[in-house]
Design a protein around this nucleic acid. Structure first.
Lengths: 345, 345
DNA sequence: CTGTTAGCGCCTTCAA
DNA sequence: TTGAAGGCGCTAACAG
């Protein structure tokens, strides 16, 4: 299993290390014939340049660290793939980590990545702590927060890219309103998350502008899972159907609501409309066909990678950037116009 | 952004590099007081050991490469998380790569990982080419093939762990038979994959033992996607319902079948039973509730990691291991006993 | 218990 | 166009 090194090649070719190095790196200071000869020998001997050693001398690895809560979450899986794709285009590799086992000290994970000399870090998270954590590392390593919104007031010093949650919330409300709904439940609001706060405010604002009130069911958990949605859904349906539409703060919650509705024999959208947020891949499945607000993961990913790479390649940037991506409405079959729900006789 | 190195610490502490190194690595050859002092200084200065440099001198990185076709595929996402978990327990980190952009030359990806000095590689794939590819690298780096079965005949020289596909196929058939089904369609057989071959043979065998014949719909694509399942499903239903149960060779295909069934107003399981294979997370969703054969990803992951680590830590192993994991039946609500389907008057 | 000294594999001046 | 030498940050003998 001994690896062949640049030295071995040099010995075989009868030249010095430096020449090999030059030949490999495409330097023009090598005669074409020796280069060809060297390349030939490399092939034959199965030479592979040692990325570690190279990175050590160059003090640049060309890898960016990506941390996501849980790759099993389809939203982050899709995001991760997009990020890898864009990064590769820009000649960076990505080192992926799940933060699920580090919930309370993402710093440890950051340290791990830093000690592996990643050139920069993209931290995917919607939790508020992530923002604070990244803030601490801001001067240590180029980094961008992905997915979590930054509040406008407290100017936390982090670079971030996220969907425009306020606009997304408004968009959701307006869609439901246009369908004629007036009695709407906002399900799964998680007050501790800025992301959720903005989403909620956008939604609420649109309601208030028409003089409508909103029934809110908060999510006491600190994650928006299918299970949480199921519990909240049961809680809602147990008291009888008092609304004609439900906005679930995330698609995962919506999935849980669907499950709860099934148990109560409530049909979607005939009995109640359901709108989600995220556009995870599950939402498009047959029988689910959830209408939702798309976070446009591809745009998020591209923006995050571009921002990070610019941070890496042109340091000295003292400011902080916050890129906002416009969300988009995806209409499937979980929302109906109100007339359909309660036909006029 | 200049990082503080072991040298800086040494200078500050007024000792030599070696002492720092020893203090950090928990060597017993350092007095407790100097160690404490050193650790203190490291904290204050924000020292982080450079994993690259360490790996270079130790010629061991403690990272294992994991390549999966596409992390967006929930089966592989779950597998990847399990692998990371087990690896961490054994003090290894994992470097994840999607092979989706390298379909035709996984070798390039292998070379990438090797040049990054991973200690070993787990290659997740059900494609036959993967087997051949890994075979070439067998003597270059410890590696194990995950998910793809090895045929018993052609003793390809690779270490592998996979579910026992033949047993899984048999299990699927027997379940359907016990429910009283006799007219069964095997949907999505992909002859080019050994994995599929074994699964199919197990299934067929069980049928033949009862003197029954099997309606087979092959999948001409080289991947078992929802889209493929949808096409095959339409093809099946277009000719009228001639079977009482369908076995879909993978859950993804089954999802497509569900979609097709919806269009034809065919109810599952009332009109036809549907059984999948894999137990991807989608299968458990409300309204889907797909009965399926579980690949027991956790067991697969653990077995693969253990095998690889043993290969890494005790080389000189000349043989080839093939671990088989017993699949398990997961009953949900997509299969019904035949009586329910066609009640006796 | 602590310091000195080689490297690990590669890149990059500086000479030739 | 090519060679020699130093150094990236760290570990592991080998001495003291």
């Amino acid at each position: 299993m001994k690896r062949v090194t640049i030295k071995d090649i040099a010995r075989i070719a009868g030249v010095s290390y430096a020449t090999i190095s030059r030949a490999l790196s495409g330097s023009s200071e090598v005669s074409e014939q020796t280069r060809k000869r060297i390349l030939e020998i490399c092939k034959q001997e199965g030479y592979r340049t040692n990325a570690l050693a190279r990175s050590l001398t160059c003090s640049k690895t060309n890898v960016i660290g990506l941390v996501v809560p849980d790759i099993t979450n389809p939203f982050y899986a899709e995001l991760a793939l997009e990020i890898e794709t864009f990064a590769r285009q820009m000649h960076y590799n990505v080192m992926l980590c799940n933060s699920i086992h580090y919930e309370n000290n993402i710093g440890e994970l950051m340290d791990f990545l830093i000690s592996h000399q990643v050139d920069g870090i993209i931290l995917g998270s919607s939790r508020n702590e992530a923002r604070a954590c990244l803030h601490e590392y801001h001067k240590t390593i180029p980094s961008v927060l992905l997915g979590a919104s930054i509040s406008d007031e407290d100017e936390y010093c982090v670079n971030a890219v996220s969907v425009d949650n306020r606009a997304g919330g408004r968009m959701a409300a307006e869609y439901l309103l246009e369908l004629g709904h007036r009695d709407i439940t906002y399900l799964g609001f998680r007050p501790s998350s800025i992301t959720h706060q903005l989403r909620y405010h956008g939604f609420l604002r649109a309601m208030e502008q028409r003089g409508l009130t909103l029934n809110v069911i908060e999510n006491p958990e600190n994650s928006s899972s299918l299970q949480a949605g199921y519990q909240l859904g049961k809680q809602l349906f147990a008291q009888g159907l008092t609304c004609t539409a439900i906005f679930a703060a995330t698609d995962s919650l919506a999935l849980g609501v669907i499950q709860a509705a099934d148990e109560f024999n409530i049909r979607i959208p005939e009995d109640v409309s359901l709108l989600g947020f995220d556009n995870i891949s599950y939402a498009a499945l047959p029988k689910i066909t959830l209408s939702t607000i798309d976070q446009r993961k591809s745009a998020l990913a591209e923006s995050a990678v571009r921002l990070l790479v610019s941070l890496i390649e042109q340091p000295s940037n003292d400011g902080y950037a916050h890129h906002m991506i416009r969300p988009a409405l995806i209409e499937r079959h979980s929302c109906a116009a109100l007339q359909l729900t309660k036909p006029t006789p």
